[in-house]
């Protein structure tokens, strides 16, 4: 659950309603609407879900049900520096999980969460196509290869 209060401004509200309208406010298009909405806001805060529910004439509970079912959808705003740790086969066997644990330990957040200061968020991904550099970590668009747990702090130093 997001602790950062989100309030739609009038322009955002109009934009969101336009998205719903572009799918004819059809409840069968819920996933597409949410996909577009996440594209706009970066995540799906409660207020966005409430507007979508109202426009598509379904309950907020059902919208929330879909948001929580698909791992693609997130109710957490992404951090200023989104960190992705590869859990693909090659990265995993070369210690990706230990790297992940180190990130968890230092940042004190779980996968899918954002630090309270909004600086970092953490997610896992499956293979960035750089298996030769395994284990791989991405921060924003920058790729770090052959990361060891004791190198995690050095990576984070670049973003302090």
């Amino acid at each position: 659950m997001s602790h950062i209060k989100f309030k739609l401004n009038p322009e955002q509200l109009t934009e969101l309603k336009e998205v719903c309208k572009s799918f004819n406010n059809d409840k069968g298009e819920l996933i597409n609407v949410l996909h577009k909405a996440q594209g706009i806001f970066g995540y799906l805060p409660a207020e966005v879900q409430e507007v979508v529910a109202k426009e598509l004439k379904i309950s907020v509970a059902q919208v929330y049900g879909v948001v929580t079912f698909y791992s693609f959808f997130s109710m957490m705003p992404k951090g200023q520096h989104p960190i992705s740790i590869c859990m693909g086969t090659a990265c995993y066997v070369r210690g990706g999980e230990k790297v992940l644990d180190e990130f968890k330990r230092i940042l004190n957040i779980q996968v899918g969460e954002t630090t309270p200061d909004g600086k970092y968020s953490m997610s896992c991904l499956r293979c960035v196509g750089a298996c030769g550099l395994a284990p791989v970590v991405m921060v924003g668009d920058k790729v770090y290869g052959r990361v060891a747990p004791d190198g995690v702090r050095d990576i984070l130093k670049n973003y302090e």
Binding site: A53, I58, S59, A61, Q62, Y64, G65, T68, F69
Partner: peptide, 16 residues
């Protein structure tokens, strides 16, 4: 019952 019959919309299956 909650959504289709009563249209109350309090309950839904969530998470997976």
């Amino acid at each position: 019952m909650c959504n289709q019959v009563q249209t109350v919309g309090a309950l839904s299956a969530v998470n997976r």
